[in-house]
Amino acid sequence: MMVATVVILARSRNLFAVVVLGGIYSFLMATVLVALDAVDVAMTEAAVGAGVSTVLLLGALHLCKAEEAKPAHRPWLPLAVAVGTGAVLVYGTLGLPAFSDPEAPIHTHVAPRYLNEALKETSVPNVVTAVLASYRGYDTLGETTVVFTAGAGVIALLRRRKKKDKADAEKAAS
């Protein structure tokens, strides 16, 4: 179903449909993440990916044109590049451990330490929260910095316009 959504998304030229399909895609991704036991991530994806992103995209659509122009040339070269990259990546996966292999390095390296010690050290039963807020607290601080910078950037970009509009209006009035 996700694959179908993505294929329609790539072909559709109506940007409104693209944005709505993007929201559907995010919700499907959230369900897949629940199936993969990543409940915290799924919740964030449903709220941020399907909620906030869709609202942002719709807001931008409101300010822009909602129809994509017809592509000037057939997309053979990008298709070839994409398929080539995919083939190389599929070849690369053959060396990776199989899905849900308990002996895979990802499950034997640091994960057991977090799972065994997190409750004793932080007394938070949700290990994801414990790692996010306690062990990797600086990481989360850096993340908030990124969000702050992005917000400041958006304000800087969109505020100049209002000032310019005012200047234009004054010029027109005088």
Partner: peptide, 27 residues
């Protein structure tokens, strides 16, 4: 494994920040 979940939580938030900045540039 909880560790990838944590990393991806960060990635989602950073992703939406990037999206917002990109859309502002588009406008």
């Amino acid at each position: 494994n909880p560790l990838p979940h944590v990393l991806i939580l960060t990635a989602i938030v950073v992703g939406v920040a990037t999206l917002a900045l990109g859309l502002a540039l588009t406008v």
